[in-house]
Design a protein around this nucleic acid. Sequence first.
RNA 1: UGGGGGAUCGUCUAGCGGUAGGACGCCGGCCUUUGGAGCCGGCUACCUAGGUUCGAUUCCUAGUCCCCCAGCCA
Length: 564
Amino acid sequence: MPEPTGASNFIRDIVAADHAAGKHGGRVVTRFPPEPNGYLHIGHAKSICLNFGIAHDTPGGLCHLRFDDTNPTTEDPEYVRAIQDDVRWLGFDWQDKMFFASDYFEQLYDFAVRLIRKGKAYVDNLTAEEMRAYRGTLTQPGKNSPSRDRSVDENLDLFRRMRTGEFADGTHVLRAKIDMASPNINLRDPVLYRIRHETHYRTGRTWCLYPAYDYAHPLSDALEGITHSICTLEFEDHRPLYDWVVEQAEAPHRPQQIEFARLNLTYTVMSKRKLLELVEKKLVSGWDDPRLPTIKGLRRRGYTPEAIRAFCDHIGVAKRDAIVEMQLLEHFIREDLNKRVPRVMAVLRPLKIILDNYPEDQFEELEAVNNPEDPSAGSRKVHFSRVLYIEQDDFREDPPKQFFRLTPGREVRLRYAYIIKCIRVTKDPQTGEVIELRCTYDPTTKSGASHEQRKVKATIHWVSASHAVKAEVRLYNPLLVTDLAKVPPDHDWTTYLNPNSLERITGCLVEPSLRQTVPGTRYQFERLGYFCTDSDSASGTLIFNRTVSLKDAWAKIEKTHASR
RNA sequence: UGGGGGAUCGUCUAGCGGUAGGACGCCGGCCUUUGGAGCCGGCUACCUAGGUUCGAUUCCUAGUCCCCCAGCCA
């Protein structure tokens, strides 16, 4: 990515101004600080694009990848691996700047001792419930803990013993001594350290004392020389605490925290808690379920890093809460895939047609363009023969107004092939279902052969019955039937899951060129949408995921017909 | 009824006292061997009320509405 990656926004403006003014010694260092307790989603991509993008576009700029692993109960190396993989896949490079907050535990401990010596922190042995009671409420000030005036020596001794494992979980915490009457609740002597007799995925049993976010984060930033610590809006009123910690600990640097609004998308979930719930309750197949807005899910679904980056650049960065429409994301993947992926013919719901006047033992190989947007993509041969399959949707015995496709007695063109006419409809005598069409083809209308005068209203796709390959296709619809923001928070959000979010279609037929496809390969199935070979394909049967449909003018017309 | 933030087209977003712009979406049209793509045109917005000013989305005042904060999560 040699070119600048992102549009201007208020954070880029601040960073650029600071850089121009020589603030922070002319350095610009950002960081992306995930906690390894879940998989990354597109909201993280926004932050990744912002942080890595700023570093990329600033001369000498750097962006650290830092795992904020201060809670041993939820974190796992599986997540560390997945996060690295996703950041890399998105196209970003942390060079040698990968860090772990857990590597700072010793230094963080020393800073805490300094705070205690300065009388800025104390060990408290109130229970969690007592502490809540002492904290006061939004409108009433809190009360000082009885432990608040312990001597420095006693605090030092207690804190040392907290570290050596003398105390049980929850019996003691280290608290900042700030102001129990502060109107900002975050400043009412927040917890800095808590005891957790747990195995940490990196430090093992070395520690039973773990730093809290509000303590570890600013100091990790300071230790790494982060200049601009970019986070989301909910941390805005933590900023005074962030600044307090850095100042009172006499940290080597003073990073600047800047907040922006997190990304929300319509008809999906973006909270780690909810995503975890879906995975754990097996409401989806895993973190990479293509219905999920996780990076892994989007990737399996067929999204490209380029499209995700373009999306992130275009949604902007601001401070107002926003819900971006899914159609915008879809726009960027269509735009990207339209230019780069080969066209191919596939029939999802086959309807057999027989060309009565086409010799039974004959077949042809017709020239098909691979990508009209990209002449260098070349062309391929497609097999044509007497028995074909077309899409059930492309035939109507009793066509509604504006339906241009095949109907009894009407002509349409078969893509890359001939004009055909439907002369007879065969139905199942029991169900009345259309099971076969008899057609004739016009040999003078071969695609590209001449500039025939005949105009047909539609061109439809098809596959040759004797050449086509069977496949399964998975269609994805929105995860939710509504936006959670519009719904009362009190009842179970999973009741708003879309029961039709996954539609599996078996018995699809695809052109034989797809026989050797490998998982992850993307195509446009002509007139249907963009698809990619699923990883489950490895087992033998071909399986394709629909990344996104093509824009469908007819569906729109039909919808307005229906609503009249 | 404490504190911190935020209000601009349907949805995102620009604007920094001087004609409210862009993208998505939507609606028309052109074009088309994908009802795709492309092209052209159109649609719709400054939370309210006062004030300052020649002029206010922008500055001031008073409201209204929305979001966040009372984890030993991050």
